[in-house]
């Protein structure tokens, strides 16, 4: 049994079968990549996993509990964090505050009325956030306005915000999309680092195969809403079905 078990998931948008009988099992401690050409249903699958979409049929179990019908914040509280294609951060707040908020969410749950306490007196939370920023090399930017940072730094910050919650599963939606080569390589290094240091289970949705080959333990290839093959990276590269559906279509 994997930590995340997707069984027989179907999702239809009008006449379009976005997901057709998708089965997926992500093992605890592994890095599982889901790749596929444009329109393969990768984003739809991700949106099902985080509670943004409810599938027409099928089940999604996380650690033995169903995630279906739960709101995104409830799913996060179960231990699933998400990194977006375009970094979603609190742009009006400082870098430090951006990391403090997930710390509070982890400790206090989805709501707590701590209106008269001072943020500054939360020593433990501050130390936790500082350690996290130090880890991703952003401690010197702690006082910066988050919106004013570069794209690469925003991605790094978003990653820190997810990691500081010590999620049991980290979902990444095309983490390098639209990035310059240097930023892409930095992000891959950061992910590898996270993997070796923290051993966090990751599911990566990716269009660019090269990004995930060096990173993933297992790869699922999705095409037209259905999983085509699932195997270790070495076997995926040369797989005839994958070549036909994916590599043959466009050399990326």
């Amino acid at each position: 049994m994997g930590i995340l078990e997707v069984k027989g998931v179907n999702k239809r948008f009008g006449g379009l079968q976005a997901l057709g009988n998708v089965n997926l099992s992500v093992q605890e401690g592994s890095v599982h990549a889901i790749i596929g050409p444009n329109g393969a249903g990768k984003s739809t699958l991700l949106n099902v996993l985080v509670g943004k979409l409810i599938p027409d049929s099928g089940s999604v179990m996380f650690d033995g509990q169903s995630v279906l019908g739960r709101k995104p914040y409830e799913i996060n509280q179960m231990g699933i964090s998400r990194v977006f294609q375009t970094p979603e951060i609190f742009g009006d707040l400082t870098v430090m505050e951006n990391v403090l908020i997930p710390c509070f969410a982890k400790r206090d749950g989805s709501f707590r009325m701590h209106a008269l306490e001072s943020v500054r007196h939360e020593k433990a939370i501050f130390e936790q956030a500082e350690a996290m920023l130090d880890d991703v090399g952003m401690l010197d930017k702690r006082g910066m306005h988050a919106a004013s940072m570069s794209r690469g730094d925003k991605r790094r910050l978003e990653m820190a915000m997810c990691l500081v919650q010590e999620p049991r599963l980290l979902l990444l939606d095309e983490p390098t999309a639209g990035m310059a080569r240097a930023d892409t390589e930095n992000t891959i290094l950061l992910l590898k680092d996270i993997r070796t240091k923290r051993g966090i289970t990751m599911a990566i949705i990716e269009h660019d195969m090269n990004v995930v080959f060096s990173l993933a333990d297992r790869i699922t290839v999705l095409a037209q809403g259905t999983p085509l093959v699932e195997d270790i990276p070495e076997n995926i590269k040369g797989h005839p079905k994958v070549r036909e559906a994916y590599l043959g279509e466009a050399q990326v």
Binding site: V50, Y73, N76, F84, P102, A105, S110, F111, Q165
Partner: peptide, 8 residues
Amino acid sequence: RMNYTGLN
């Protein structure tokens, strides 16, 4: 981000 940080 608020929603995906586990906050209602």
